[in-house]
């Protein structure tokens, strides 16, 4: 309970794929440190033998019939992509 939680902001920002400025890193580290201190209180709860809930209600897998249905046209599906050509999304080169 007593140890202060460590949030390695460089590592977590890397995992989250967000470029943070040094000022943002300092600010978020301090703010989230406070939040983590608050969250530490959960360690007081006896959860032995308690099943975790991913949802409030037991949600079972739902199967759909394997039947083709009308969907978006390629044009509609791509209309919000920032760069595209020939009905494809364009991105910077990823392999040499």
């Amino acid at each position: 309970m007593s140890e202060t939680p460590e949030l390695n902001i460089d590592r977590v920002a890397e995992l989250a794929r967000i470029a943070l400025t040094p000022a943002e890193k300092a600010e978020y580290s301090a703010q989230l440190g406070e939040v983590l201190k608050h969250i530490e209180q959960l360690k007081q709860v006896d959860v032995s033998g308690v099943e975790p809930s991913a949802h409030a209600f037991a949600v079972e897998n739902v199967w759909a019939d394997d039947v083709a249905q009308a969907g978006l046209t390629a044009e509609a599906a791509l209309q919000n992509a920032p760069a595209q050509r020939d009905n494809m999304i364009a991105v910077p080169k990823v392999v040499e």
Partner: peptide, 30 residues
């Protein structure tokens, strides 16, 4: 949004998942 993504990424990250996310799911049951 950045703060919440950072916090969420942290509580799911390797080494912290059980202590935060899994525990929170159990408290949710209670």
């Amino acid at each position: 949004v950045k703060r919440r993504i950072i916090l969420g990424t942290y509580v799911l990250s390797s080494g912290y998942y059980d202590a935060y996310y899994l525990r929170a799911q159990k408290v949710r049951t209670l």
